Amino acid sequence: MVHKHRKITPAEFLMRFLLITVGAVLAGTALEVFLVNNTIIDGGITGVSIVLAKVTKMPLGIFLFVINLPFLFIGYKQVGKTFAFSSLYGIVVLSVTTTLMHHWKPVTDEKILAVLFGGLLLGFGVGIVLRAGGSTDGAEILAILISKKTNIPVGQIILGINVVIFIVAGFILGWDSAMYSIFTFYIASKVMDIVVEGLNESKSVTIISKEYEEISQAIMDRLGRSTTYIYAKGGYSQEDTQMIYCVVTRLEVAKLKAVVQDIDRRAFIAIEHVSDVSGGNFSKKSIH
């Protein structure tokens, strides 16, 4: 049986491009109003574009658009047309924004303030674009494709690309600028993660205990979270048992540990980060 892809509704389409527009404008504002004029760069294609704009004295928007185009073409072929078109729109808006703001004076000449506020605004803007299903930097597409060929995690590839960019920037723009840029990139990355994943990020929890029934019931009663049993067999004891699996928010982890250890202090608890949760019934049940 072939399942048809659900078509995006006009309202969803409009909301997606509205969010990408807002995010790209915020990112462009961060670049021109805080970072570029203070000789602070970002990572990825944006960082390369800023270095070239500084060297050639040409508008940043030209390089943002031209350098990203080949990666968008590759993305269209390999990653998907929806992502490619959403990213193309985001990059166009980012390029236009930086071009229109090219002659604006920086809000501050203090490097630390530029790093803090520029990083915050840039991370917030890029995070909105990513959450809407687009991108403002072709380096992410390149990293995805390299990862498919080499099995190296995407995050490590992006880190490697940015290390090279910051080293090159150090030679061209000066090491002070390169070091400020590293902190800007770090701040932007953390803010971006918060926007994409949300402040109330989720954790998946696996619990192994002989008291699995009592623990499962306690989690449902005291945390209001549903649980799932997964059949397991002890490698050493060869005994059949049930593992408990559930998803909780970051703020509920400590309470969950206390609930489990109240019942079985020797219970095995494994906690992993969950980048996104959808479907099912993740919302809390009312606790009476």
Rank of each mutant, 00 (worst) to 15 (best):
E213L: 11
Q217I: 10
W104M: 15
V196M: 10
I172W: 07
L94A: 02
T150C: 05
T150M: 04
A143S: 13
I144V: 07
L121N: 04
D176R: 09
L145N: 13
M220R: 14
L94M: 03
I219F: 14
G155H: 06
T99D: 13
F124M: 11
K149Q: 04
T98V: 09
K190D: 10
I167H: 11
I167K: 05
T150L: 05
V164Y: 07
S189K: 10
N200V: 11
A139Y: 02
R222S: 05
S204G: 13
M192G: 07
T150S: 09
H103F: 15
A169N: 14
I208Y: 05
I152N: 15
I194F: 15
E213D: 09
Q217M: 12
G90R: 02
E197Y: 11
T99S: 15
S189G: 14
F166E: 02
V168G: 07
P106K: 00
W175T: 06
P153L: 07
V196C: 13
G127T: 10
G134I: 03
I158C: 05
I208E: 06
L173Y: 03
E140Q: 07
V93Y: 01
D193G: 13
F171T: 14
T98L: 04
G125K: 00
T108V: 00
G90H: 01
I207L: 06
M220S: 14
V154T: 05
I161K: 02
A178S: 04
L122C: 02
T108S: 00
I112E: 01
Y186T: 08
L100Q: 06
D176W: 07
I182W: 02
L145Q: 11
Q217T: 13
I146E: 06
F185R: 05
I144C: 14
N200A: 12
I161F: 12
A143G: 09
L94E: 00
V195F: 12
G170V: 04
L120W: 04
E140D: 10
S204L: 10
I91H: 00
K190Y: 11
A132G: 05
G138K: 00
D137Q: 03
G123F: 01
L116P: 08
D221L: 15
G160E: 06
M192K: 11
I187A: 02
I187C: 01
I161D: 04
A188H: 05
L145G: 12
S204V: 15
I194C: 13
V164C: 08
E214I: 15
T206I: 15
K203Q: 12
S189H: 12
L173R: 03
V191L: 11
I152L: 07
W104T: 13
A143F: 08
